[in-house]
Amino acid sequence: MNRRHFLQGAAALGGAGLLTGLYTWQVEPFWLEFVQVPMPIKHLPDALVGKTLMQISDTHVGNRFDRQYLIESFEKAQQLAPDFVVYTGDFVNYESEEQFAQLREVYAHAVRGKLGTLGVLGNHDYGLNWQEPEVAQRVAGILEEKGISILRNEQQNLAGLNFVGLDDFWGTNFAPHQVMSDLQKEQANVVLCHNPDVADEPVWNGYQSWILSGHTHGGQCKPPFLRAPMLPVRNKRYTAGTFALDDGRTLYINRALGHLWQVRFNVRPEITVFRLERG
């Protein structure tokens, strides 16, 4: 290869690299996808067949991210008029008390379901090193003010669909046995649990239905045809999407609406819309 051809090739590669960098920084982090997923549930009441359940996860309200994008995403989601809305943790990226005001600003526009709105906390909602329960309490209180009932190892039945909320796996209040030990298996159940690694913990007591999680962001950057190189879970199988577990449970991992760092490649931000079916 002569010098002229080499320089032309280098310029082309440099241009492609620049465009890819701009795309991963300024385009894909804001290219929201509404993912439609059928959700068959055992014992689902006839009145709930065809209803929609929207999952929003990992908004990471804070200083590293455009909060207006979150507000605009909520406004788009509201146009779908979901019947149920669930939030699966990491509402904030906590650095200081400044995040409490930011959380109020964003969640003044929260998406709420016609039949109910629930959520669970994630590790970032527990402050620095996930060990500040007073931060988690403040976050939960603000969300309750905005119409989102936060389940902390608790269950709540909405119109015949029973939601079980497990507090965060890495936080200071992870106590799944409090709620899983007396779960009624003959009712329609859905578990909300921020960290999908909990699916591998011995806490399920014969549960056979859906588990909705977030936490991974799908890895945020995933080379085509390869695994995501960075996942904050023990079980590296748990990336994003639907996983049929061997004992009758179905795990769904949302790719996150927000992010910690403004970079995404081949992993668009997601809001999931489940359509309820008889299982």
Rank of each mutant, 00 (worst) to 15 (best):
residue 234 R to T: 11
residue 243 F to K: 08
residue 222 K to G: 07
residue 237 R to M: 11
residue 210 W to G: 04
residue 218 G to L: 01
residue 240 A to H: 04
residue 221 C to D: 00
residue 226 L to V: 08
residue 219 G to Q: 03
residue 233 V to Y: 09
residue 209 S to L: 10
residue 219 G to C: 05
residue 215 H to P: 12
residue 227 R to N: 13
residue 228 A to T: 01
residue 214 G to A: 02
residue 239 T to M: 06
residue 232 P to N: 09
residue 238 Y to H: 10
residue 220 Q to E: 09
residue 233 V to R: 10
residue 226 L to N: 00
residue 214 G to M: 00
residue 215 H to T: 03
residue 241 G to A: 01
residue 225 F to D: 14
residue 242 T to M: 12
residue 243 F to A: 04
residue 241 G to L: 03
residue 210 W to I: 12
residue 242 T to N: 12
residue 227 R to Q: 13
residue 228 A to Q: 03
residue 215 H to R: 10
residue 219 G to D: 00
residue 214 G to V: 02
residue 243 F to M: 06
residue 227 R to A: 12
residue 241 G to I: 08
residue 244 A to W: 00
residue 230 M to C: 10
residue 240 A to T: 01
residue 225 F to G: 09
residue 212 L to H: 03
residue 234 R to A: 15
residue 213 S to A: 15
residue 220 Q to W: 02
residue 215 H to K: 08
residue 231 L to P: 07
residue 212 L to A: 09
residue 237 R to G: 15
residue 232 P to H: 02
residue 241 G to K: 04
residue 230 M to I: 11
residue 222 K to P: 05
residue 241 G to E: 07
residue 209 S to E: 13
residue 224 P to C: 09
residue 216 T to Y: 04
residue 241 G to M: 00
residue 209 S to G: 14
residue 240 A to K: 02
residue 236 K to N: 08
residue 212 L to D: 01
residue 239 T to I: 13
residue 227 R to F: 06
residue 229 P to H: 10
residue 213 S to E: 07
residue 237 R to D: 15
residue 209 S to I: 06
residue 218 G to Q: 05
residue 244 A to H: 12
residue 228 A to M: 01
residue 242 T to W: 05
residue 218 G to K: 05
residue 237 R to C: 11
residue 219 G to T: 01
residue 232 P to V: 04
residue 236 K to W: 10
residue 218 G to I: 00
residue 217 H to N: 03
residue 243 F to Q: 07
residue 213 S to R: 07
residue 234 R to P: 04
residue 236 K to Q: 15
residue 214 G to P: 06
residue 224 P to L: 11
residue 233 V to Q: 12
residue 226 L to G: 03
residue 227 R to E: 08
residue 212 L to I: 06
residue 240 A to I: 01
residue 236 K to E: 14
residue 244 A to M: 10
residue 238 Y to Q: 08
residue 224 P to A: 14
residue 231 L to G: 02
residue 226 L to R: 15
residue 223 P to N: 11
residue 215 H to C: 09
residue 216 T to E: 09
residue 212 L to G: 07
residue 232 P to I: 03
residue 239 T to Y: 03
residue 211 I to F: 08
residue 217 H to D: 00
residue 235 N to R: 13
residue 224 P to F: 15
residue 234 R to H: 13
residue 242 T to H: 12
residue 209 S to Q: 11
residue 226 L to D: 00
residue 239 T to V: 14
residue 231 L to Q: 03
residue 237 R to N: 15
residue 220 Q to K: 03
residue 242 T to Q: 15
residue 216 T to P: 11
residue 223 P to C: 11
residue 227 R to P: 10
residue 219 G to Y: 01
residue 231 L to V: 14
residue 219 G to R: 04
residue 231 L to D: 00
residue 244 A to L: 13
residue 240 A to D: 08
residue 215 H to V: 06
residue 228 A to R: 02
residue 214 G to Q: 07
residue 239 T to H: 09
residue 220 Q to M: 10
residue 233 V to F: 08
residue 237 R to A: 15
residue 224 P to Q: 12
residue 220 Q to P: 01
residue 214 G to T: 09
residue 217 H to G: 07
residue 214 G to Y: 02
residue 211 I to Y: 02
residue 238 Y to A: 05
residue 222 K to R: 15
residue 210 W to N: 11
